[in-house]
Each structure stands twice: as C-alpha cells, then as structure tokens.
Amino acid sequence: MSTLRVTVEELTVHEHPHADALELAQVGLYRAVVAKGVYRTGDLAVYVPEQAVLPEELVAELGLSGKLAGSAANRVKAIRLRGELSQGIVCRPKALNGADLVRAHEDGADLAAELGVVKWVPPVPVSMSGEVEAAPGLLPWIDIENLKRYPAAFSEGEPVAEKVHGTACCLTFGVRDEHVQVTSKGLGAQRLALVEDPKNLYWRAVRGHDVPRVAAEIAGELGASRVGVYGEVYGDGVQDLGYGADSRRGEPAYAVFDVAVDIGGQLRWLDPQELTAVLEGRLPVVPTLYSGPYDARLVMELAEGRETLSGRAVHLREGVVVRPLQDRYSAELGGRAIAKVVSGAYLTRKGGTEYE
C-alpha cells in the first residue's frame, strides 16, 4: 500500500466526456469526478486518496453518507462514475479556510491527523498471521508510492515489471548465525517476525521454494552479512486473483520482486538485470513487461490488460511497478526510485481482497 497523505493540491479541471453536470479534477495523474462548476483550473483543494477512512462527521459534511466503501461506508475507494475512473476525493472541508489551504499547500503539510483521516488496514486471515517476535535486525519491505501521485519521479529509461496480486513475503538471512526471519509487509514495518509455523502461508512459501538456501548463496557470492529476499506469495486461497495456482494445498506459488544485500553496513538493492541473473535457475521472478525509454503514457497502458504471470492470461492485471535500470534515489519520492500504477479494472473489480 502507498503512504497515506491528505494534502492540499492545485487542480487541473477537465470536461467529463459523458456527463454534462460533472467534471474531472486532476491531482498529479489521478483524476476525481466532481460536480461541474465547483472548481476551476488553478484552484486549491484538499485531496483525500484511496484507502483513507474518514470520520463520520466529515463523511456527512461532504454529503457522502452511505456512498463510500466498507461496512461503515467511510472508506475511500476507486469507482467509475459515468464511465470515468474516479480515484480519491477532492474537497474543501469547513475546518479549513482559504488561508489555511494556501499555507498547507506551500508547506506540503499532511492534514490527515487534523481532519481525523486514517489509513485503512485490511484484516489478516489466520493463514497469514501467527505468533510474532521482535526482529530489530529485519530488512523490511517499503511502501511503494503510486506514480499517479508523483508523476515527476521518472524521466529516464526504466523497466516496468508486472504487479502481482498476492501477499508480500519478506525474508531476512543473517550470515553470522545463519538466522532466518520471515515476515509480512505489515508486520515487517513494525519490526516483527513470524515464529516458524508449518501452517503459516509465508513459512510454507519460503521453505517450499528453499528461499533461505538461495539467500545464503547470494550472501556468499556478494560478500553480504545480511540478505533480504522479497517475494509475492500468490494463488487461489491467498487473494481473489489466483493466477491459475492453488496455494491451499502443498507449496504456495511464489515470485521474487526485489533483493537487498547488506555489505559492510551499507544496504544495496540489486538492479533489475542483476536480480534476474542472480536468481536464474534458483527462484521465479515477477515478469518484466517492458524495458526501455520511460514513457508515462505507455506505463499507464501497460498497467491495464491481462496478467502474464500464469502464461495463460487467466484474469486481469493488478498493475505495474516502475523502477530504474540502476537503483537510485528519487527526490520526488524522498527515497528509492520505485513506484506503482494500479489497473483501473483491478481497483473497481467486485469482491476483491487486499491482505498485506
């Protein structure tokens, strides 16, 4: 999931092609459907992104009672309105006057706490949970921001990998004591590891694919003291999109999307080509859909369509992840240059699951 930030943004307003009473307010590359005439290009407004949970009073103030997602009808979710994808909410809460909007925009302030907005955390199934232990030496995964929110993050030739709808499995291998720690994305952010349990989905995946052995080999070859292997566990029984694999019995399906190595106290992420070469014949890797000059329009097109992981285009594609040919820092993102674009069809599908 992306980081939740509620910010004041300058809008670009477009006509809605299928509705006379509606318009499209653009923030970055996101577009949200708004009532016609409320905003003009250049106006400032609050942008509340997807996965935000709003307090009841704000829901009522915005006239959205009974119109949002979730059992309490208070969660922001992508929808289609008269055929156009609407992602997030554009609004001007009464708690903020014009001067407040200008100041928050200039400061880049996060207004989530002030407005009582929190991030939605999906429930964790029993197969993905378990007993946990403190893991200060863990190499956890990071939140990947959405390229639509940060469109200036890339301007060079970048590869694009398919985004897999599974659950992120993070493994850390320590050379000194050959210690293996396994966690999910959500638990890893809290520096917690899962105690080994043969019934746990993540441990079944790493043992079934012999990931600790591969991590140890990578450590030896690259002279690393710690290795982090980040893979997607997927298949029927994991999320609603199974890619033709059944993870309810036997070995769960698994594909690596990133590897980090700690060499001399410096953490380095393997470049895409290096990752593929290091893992060849050892572990499956998430498919690369394109590698070449970066083109935002092409990336948006690649985010849609059918998945390629199964080799049979079983269902729709979740989206894509964009990263440079050589790992680098992005001032726009404030961290690694890596971002995602999620398919509109995926966001608006029925009966979807979003376990971390």
Rank of each mutant, 00 (worst) to 15 (best):
A152E: 12
E106G: 10
I89R: 05
L85E: 08
G352M: 07
V118C: 10
S184E: 11
R5H: 14
V182L: 06
P293L: 08
L201S: 06
V238M: 00
A19W: 10
A345N: 14
G130E: 04
L96F: 13
L270M: 10
G235C: 03
G352N: 07
D262R: 03
P125A: 02
S2N: 14
L267S: 09
S71Y: 08
V278W: 01
D110K: 09
T41M: 10
P125M: 01
Q273Y: 11
Q51K: 07
R312L: 08
Y346H: 12
E280W: 02
H16F: 02
A35N: 13
H18L: 13
G223A: 02
L96I: 09
F173E: 08
N146H: 12
G28M: 11
S310F: 03
S225V: 12
V8Y: 07
S247A: 13
W269L: 14
G237L: 06
L85T: 10
A253L: 12
A277V: 01
L298E: 12
P159N: 01
V121H: 09
L241M: 12
T183H: 07
V214T: 06
A152V: 10
R103D: 15
L283E: 02
F173A: 09
L325R: 15
A161E: 14
K94D: 11
K119T: 10
R312G: 03
V211D: 00
T348I: 03
V341Q: 00
A245P: 06
R328H: 08
K163N: 13
D240Q: 03
G83Y: 00
G63A: 05
Y230N: 10
R248D: 05
D327S: 15
I142W: 01
S184H: 08
F257M: 09
N146L: 11
E162T: 09
E106N: 12
V261A: 15
L187C: 11
A52F: 03
E9S: 15
G83W: 00
L270P: 08
G319W: 00
Y290R: 11
S310P: 07
K67V: 09
Y39K: 10
A205M: 05
C169W: 04
A168W: 02
E354I: 04
A152T: 12
R282Y: 01
T41G: 13
M1V: 10
E114F: 04
K350S: 14
G351V: 03
G264N: 09
T276H: 10
L101M: 07
E162V: 09
H179T: 15
E304V: 00
I338W: 00
D236T: 11
A135M: 02
D43G: 04
Q273W: 12
S330N: 04
I263L: 13
D20M: 02
V164K: 07
E232K: 01
K77Y: 05
P159Y: 00
R317V: 06
K119I: 07
G108A: 13
V124T: 14
Y150G: 09
A78K: 00
E15N: 11
V118N: 09
D246I: 05
A99V: 05
L279P: 14
P49G: 02
A78G: 07
H209Q: 00
L24Q: 03
P55V: 03
L96A: 05
A104M: 07
V195I: 04
T348K: 03
E274A: 14
A25I: 02
T348M: 07
S127L: 12
P93N: 04
M128L: 12
Y150T: 07
E145R: 04
A109P: 08
Y202I: 01
R103W: 01
H105E: 06
E332H: 03
A25G: 09
D177I: 01
Y329P: 15
